[in-house]
Design a protein around this nucleic acid. Structure first.
Lengths: 154, 154
DNA sequence: CTAGAATAGTTGTTATTGCAACTAATATAG
DNA sequence: CTATATTAGTTGCAATAACAACTATTCTAG
């Protein structure tokens, strides 16, 4: 007794589409705030967030961490450097590498943004009770792992 | 007894970030297949998907449906029209409007893609049992509604 | 040592996106 | 009616993205 599958695709119920639109909406709202209040793009903020967690990281490490092309990280960094939110210094042990850290100003901005970000997350999560939050969290992780294993073009 | 919030933001556990990377990954995998096998971008496929569901829709309706800028829809449509996957005809009752439908070829491609899409969704969902699927589904819907109500810049 | 592979980062090119301005057609208020 | 507002769709432009080529440095095999 197999469940027959429709020959029409209902986009609004299609998981990849739903995730994409949900994520777009959620990113879009916070992106507006980052831009309005701090003049930062989401990518720029993510770079700063990594440097807040891992001071001294290299551009390459940042790129791997946030899964963004290193060329994009490079150009975003140029803006952050120009605004003196980040400094870099050549690593003395490996002169290819440049260690990145938030400046004083960068840390100030970081400290302002973190609570805004958490507020936003909290607002989103008010639609779940704590049990549901934990569940959703776990399901997202499972789905993420699952997506990693799929190879559609073997 | 309030839960204290960290003054560092852990990007990998931050919901908007997690949704964005998950969605990117999930869209990226299927995008590659659409491109390789059918020469379609995700946007182009979404337009076709809407026209499969709603033959005769206008560009504007498509744009609203899939929440994509009408300029992007317009340009994507130009490609679909050039490939004769879609035709349009001026609406006789309202000559601003153009009714869009899949051509014979367009329908053929549509019929080929639909099962590929469902297969992919099924593969993703194998990491959930049916109860979890229903739950995840419901939680996504709730989150979506919640995101709609949030206004960070009141 | 030293030649070739690997790594960190930048830059060029092209395609895509997002916003606003624009054209053409229709709806509506006076 | 007719002037104005609204709607459907296209186009221009600036910003962003993806991908590859490139420089400079370090690692590694022989």
């Amino acid at each position: 007794m197999s469940k027959t599958r429709p020959d029409i695709l209902t986009l609004e119920r299609y998981l990849p589409y739903r995730l994409a639109t949900l994520s777009n909406r959620i990113s879009g709202i916070i992106a507006q705030t980052y831009k309005d209040k701090f003049g930062l793009s989401v990518t720029e903020w993510r770079i700063m967030a990594v440097l807040g967690e891992y001071p001294g990281a290299s551009a390459d490490e940042v790129s791997v961490k946030i899964q963004i092309e290193k060329s994009i990280v490079s150009r975003s960094l140029q803006k952050l450097l120009a605004r003196h939110l980040v400094v870099r210094e050549v690593d003395s042990a490996d002169r290819r590498r440049q260690n990145l850290t938030l400046t004083k100003t960068g840390k100030d901005v970081y400290r302002q943004i973190v609570p805004v970000s958490y507020d936003y997350e909290d607002q989103l999560l008010t639609c779940f009770n704590s049990e549901e939050q934990a569940l959703f969290d776990a399901l997202l992780d499972r789905l993420y792992d699952q997506a990693d294993t799929i190879d559609l073009n073997p």
